[in-house]
């Protein structure tokens, strides 16, 4: 019985195998970390909406304040999607025959909700509070991006736990005066010095907790 002998060319494979053995785990780690990251999976979610409502027009060109519609944001945990009445404050008169507004008019007549698609979803075990943030100098733009330039709203930031903690560990650079809270074009990094932002930490008594129970109950 003859012994099996590896052919001579397999010797060339040995260094290749060593290289593959060293790079393959790194490659897998890279693909998983990069591919499963919330920045890949969550950012960029842009559901189609029942009405082609343009934030770029209303909040951008018209310059309407975010709180005209999302009026609960300063007093409640939840920044409410406005009732159809808010749309009809103007649209009983302006563009009142527009085909784009058919679902709005139907909702106004029937009293049924417009089925807006929710863009910014958090896990059900996290209890984010809008009022706690916007009343203490965290602007809308920090989490929602330049909504005033979006025709259709997309998810601009990952809203993952690590991303929340980045700011909770050092909020200084994310703070602005409360008077600029809905001004999406205003950037505290160019408009204020680091010292001025540090003074906001004291002014607003900002002590962001990293306790589990801060966000999870």
């Amino acid at each position: 019985m003859s012994r099996f002998l590896f052919p001579r060319w397999t010797n060339a494979l040995l260094p290749l195998l060593l290289v593959a053995g060293a790079t393959l785990p790194l490659y897998v780690v890279f693909v998983v970390a990069y591919g499963f990251s919330p920045k890949t999976l969550d950012v960029g979610y842009m559901p189609s909406q029942p009405v082609p409502y343009s934030h770029a027009l209303h909040a951008g060109i018209l310059g309407m304040d975010c709180r005209y519609c999302h009026n609960t944001v300063e007093s409640a945990a939840f920044a409410a999607v406005p009732p159809t009445q808010t749309c009809m404050n103007c649209h009983t008169q302006i563009h009142r025959d527009s085909p784009k507004l058919v679902p709005v008019r139907q909702s106004y007549e029937t009293g049924l909700s417009i089925p807006w698609a929710k863009v910014h979803k958090l896990p059900d075990y996290s209890y984010f509070d809008h009022s706690a943030h916007v009343n203490r100098g965290v602007g809308c733009v920090e989490c929602h991006g330049r909504v005033d330039q979006m025709e259709v709203v997309w998810k601009d930031q990952p809203l993952s736990m690590g991303w929340c903690l980045d700011c909770h560990r050092d909020p200084t650079d994310r703070l602005r005066p409360v008077s600029q809270i809905t001004n999406l074009a205003w950037d505290q990094k160019t408009q204020m010095t680091r010292e001025e932002r540090e003074s906001l930490v004291k002014l607003y008594h900002i002590n962001p907790s990293e306790n589990c129970s801060t966000c999870h109950r």
């Binding site: 499963f36 920045k39 890949t40 999976l41 969550d42 950012v43 960029g44 979610y45 842009m46 559901p47 189609s48 896990p123 059900d124 075990y125 997309w154 998810k155």
Partner: peptide, 20 residues
């Protein structure tokens, strides 16, 4: 995927208790 917006709901690898 990172560079393009997507109308489909985000893929959830681990559901944990995200949807209660």
């Amino acid at each position: 995927v990172r560079a393009t917006p997507d109308p489909n709901p985000p893929v959830h690898i681990f559901h944990d208790m995200d949807f209660q």
